[in-house]
C-alpha cells in the first residue's frame, strides 16, 4: 500500500526528516509515536502533498505509484486521507456540501457517477451517527465555531464518508477528553478492514489503547529509531522517549 524509502525532507532549508523507511500493507494499522518536534506532522503533510516541504532525497510509493509527483487532490482521489491535527475553519462553505463536492470529485476521478443529494444525505446521516456528530454540525460551515472535539469528530466523519484506502491520522487524539477519544476511536475502528491501511500518528500511548496497532514505530529527530508491536507503545509510556532516544537506531 505505502512504501517510504530513505525519505529526507527540509522545511525552509532545515532538515526535518532524515531518512525514513516505512512499509505499510493493506489491512494494517501502523502507529508512529514521537515527541514534539520529531517530524511526525511533517511526515503527514508530505504524504498529503502540502506546499513548503522539500523532499531532498528518497521516494514514496503509494499503490506502486510515485506519490510525491501527485497533486494533493489526486492523492485524495486515489484514496489517501489526512486527518488533520488542526482542522481549519472555512466560514461560508457548508460542511455537508463541501463533503459532497469532495466525494463526487473523488467518484468522478474513479469514473463513478456522482451521488445525488438524496443518496448523499442518507450516507451522511449514517456516518454522522457513527461518530455522534450532531446533524446541526454537518450543516454548519466547515469547522466554523466547532469545539476541539467536534473538529476531530468531523475529521473522522469525513473519513467515513470518503472511505479512503490509506488514512493518515495526525494527532487525532490531541485535545480530546476520554469520552470523545472513545467515540473517535470507535469510528476509526469501524473503518478498519482488509483493504484499508492506517497510519496513526500520536504523541501519547493513550490513543493506542483504543486503536490497537499492528506495528509501532518510534520517530525521534527525523528518524525511526525503534519498530515493534503494540507492546512497544506500552514500554514507551513506562520508560519515556528519553530511554528510547538513547538506544541506537536499528
Amino acid at each position: 500500500m505505502l512504501k517510504i524509502e530513505d525519505l529526507h525532507v527540509e522545511v525552509d532549508g532545515k532538515p526535518i526528516l532524515k531518512g525514513i523507511n516505512l512499509e505499510v500493507e493493506a489491512g494494517q494499522v501502523h502507529a508512529i509515536m514521537g515527541p514534539n518536534g520529531s517530524g511526525k506532522s511533517t511526515l503527514a503533510y508530505v504524504l498529503a502533498g502540502r506546499d513548503g516541504y522539500e523532499v531532498t532525497k528518497g521516494r514514496v510509493l503509494y499503490k506502486g505509484q510515485d506519490l510525491l509527483e501527485m497533486a494533493p487532490e489526486i492523492r485524495a482521489a486515489g484514496g489517501l486521507f489526512l486527518g488533520f491535527q488542526y482542522p481549519v475553519a472555512i466560514p461560508g462553505v457548508s460542511n455537508i456540501y463541501f463533503l459532497k463536492a469532495a466525494l463526487n470529485a473523488i467518484r468522478k476521478h474513479r469514473g463513478e457517477d456522482p451521488l445525488d443529494a438524496i443518496d448523499f444525505m442518507k450516507l451522511s446521516k449514517e456516518k454522522a451517527a457513527l461518530v455522534q456528530l450532531p446533524d446541526e454540525l454537518t450543516k454548519r460551515s466547515v469547522n466554523d465555531g466547532f469545539s476541539g472535539g467536534e473538529k476531530k469528530r468531523n475529521e473522522i466523519f469525513q473519513m467515513a464518508i470518503l472511505e479512503p484506502s490509506l488514512a493518515v491520522l495526525d494527532e487525532t487524539d490531541s485535545g480530546l477528553d476520554i469520552d470523545a477519544l472513545k467515540v473517535v476511536a470507535e469510528g476509526v475502528n469501524s473503518l478498519r478492514g482488509p483493504e484499508r491501511a492506517m497510519l496513526v500518528i500520536t504523541h501519547y500511548q493513550r490513543l493506542l489503547d483504543y486503536i490497537v496497532p499492528d506495528v509501532v514505530h518510534v520517530l525521534i529527530d527525523g528518524q525511526i529509531v525503534r519498530t515493534g508491536d503494540k507492546d512497544l507503545a506500552k514500554q514507551l509510556e513506562k520508560e519515556g522517549y528519553a530511554e528510547v532516544r538513547d538506544a541506537q537506531p536499528l
Partner: peptide
Amino acid sequence: DQLFYLRARGIPEDLAHSMLTYA
C-alpha cells in the same frame, strides 16, 4: 490552509478557488 484542506479532500484546485472566493 483552507485551500490545502479542500484539496486534501479531493477537491480540484480551481474548484477549491471558486468555493473560497464565493464563501
